[in-house]
Design a protein around this nucleic acid. Structure first.
Lengths: 238, 238
DNA sequence: AAAAATATTAACAATTTTGTTAGAATTTTC
DNA sequence: GAAAATTCTAACAAAATTGTTAATATTTTT
């Protein structure tokens, strides 16, 4: 769960031992932290995750996070030097979770390509359904602080790049087999991402306006999923 | 442009004359403000609009707005009592702009329904292209402050409700004519909104990751538009 | 031109928010 | 069990942020 991320406390500890402190130590190459090794630190991370997801960086409050975690805010500054640093770790974590989920969507199988795509759409939809705040979180933070994406650009680009290549190969082969019509990988994936993510981006507004018309939140979400599967299916069909 | 909105100064002025001050005076029924009537007030509104669009309510700063507008922040509090009040006016304005644009998408014509839809998709896409920050702005503010939608819920719901009815009638008739396949208005409009809005929601991320692959921002945007038109067309085709 | 209304400024103030520090308490290491 | 490292607390502090106020300048009305 926690990629590229460990606390200042952990770095300090490590550094005390190995005596190699630098300000910009590369977190990636330090052994990842054992979970539940430290209750308070984990409580802070959990609280910070929720606070940042819900309110974004600008709306989040260090004191509010500390209160949720059941610690003083001085404690929070002890484990994580600044708000920015606490945020960066959590942000990187989400980015890798999103990218990781995407790149695992296609698993080699003998199924027809159109079926593989539908499976991927379904898995992706369910992932966002389980993590409905992530799309807005990522979009909002990149939009308000564009410089943040620089930190992860290269690592993400290569991962995603390979993934797009895989999908494009699948498309090319399916085209040769006469299974699908013409489309390129980027547009197909952008369509899927748009339809799936926007369902949950717009949900609060939709239910504020149309709540009285629809029986139930989950009923509408399931209807959207079926509609998206149909839309993508028809987009690929010859 | 400015719906349901006038400044405290203007209300004060009006109230001084008509001697009918109440705290919750209904702005809607006060004569709308003449543009350019007051340079400083307009400069504040313009600056606030940009600041809120760019940074959201939580990230926006009264002093920053005042500086952009070339006035002291005391001046800003003179025209608009609080940050919240300044924001509310601008927010309402955006909501009505978005809803207004949507409800004007379908104009009665003799064209085949599928062509009417494609025209609407194109107009809607271009609207967001001209106002690319609005979708994130609205989604973000509703997500972080859900109570705000209550202020406009009823007025918006009825407007949108009527619009959905119009679209549904068009669908029903086109179905009878054998022009399109089965779909309901809400899903169709949600599809269009998803594909169009997400293009611009994801653009900063997309270009951070894939910028090097694509020649130009505007080229990609145009490609997306064509892809969306194709996707909606195939979704409706029998 | 006098009076009234409106616009503007500068200084002040309350609160929030992030961050620090010195020292005490606890745990770990030797 | 002594020394060292660490965890933790309470109080402090600096800066940012929103908002107020009293006095002054300007414009509008009569």
């Amino acid at each position: 769960m926690l990629y590229l991320f460990c606390s200042i406390k952990f770095v300090n500890k490590t550094v005390n031992k190995i005596r190699q402190w630098t300000q910009n130590i590369n977190f990636q190459y330090i052994t990842t932290m054992t979970k539940h090794q430290n209750n308070k630190e984990m409580a802070i991370l959990e609280a910070a995750r929720n606070e940042f997801l819900e309110k974004g960086y600008d709306g989040a409050r260090i004191t509010s996070i500390a209160k949720s975690a059941g610690v003083t805010h001085a404690m929070l500054h002890y484990y994580f030097k600044t708000k920015e640093q606490l945020f960066t770790g959590i942000f990187d974590d989400f980015i890798h979770q999103v990218v990781g989920n995407m790149t695992e969507l296609f698993n080699d199988s003998d199924k027809p390509f159109i079926q593989q795509v539908e499976d991927a759409v379904s898995v992706h939809f369910d992932f966002i359904k389980e993590n409905p705040q992530i799309p807005l979180f990522v979009i909002r933070e990149i939009a308000t602080h564009p410089e943040r994406i620089e930190l992860i650009k290269d690592s993400v680009a290569s991962t995603i790049g390979g993934f797009f290549g895989t999908v494009q190969k699948g498309i090319d082969q399916a085209r040769i087999n006469g299974e699908i019509c013409d489309i390129d990988a980027i547009n197909l994936l952008f369509d899927v991402l748009s339809l799936n993510a926007f369902t949950f981006l717009a949900r609060p507004i939709f239910f504020a306006v149309f709540g009285r018309l629809t029986a139930d939140d989950s009923v509408f979400i399931e209807l959207r999923k079926q509609e998206i599967l149909k839309t993508i299916h028809k987009r690929l069909a010859i």
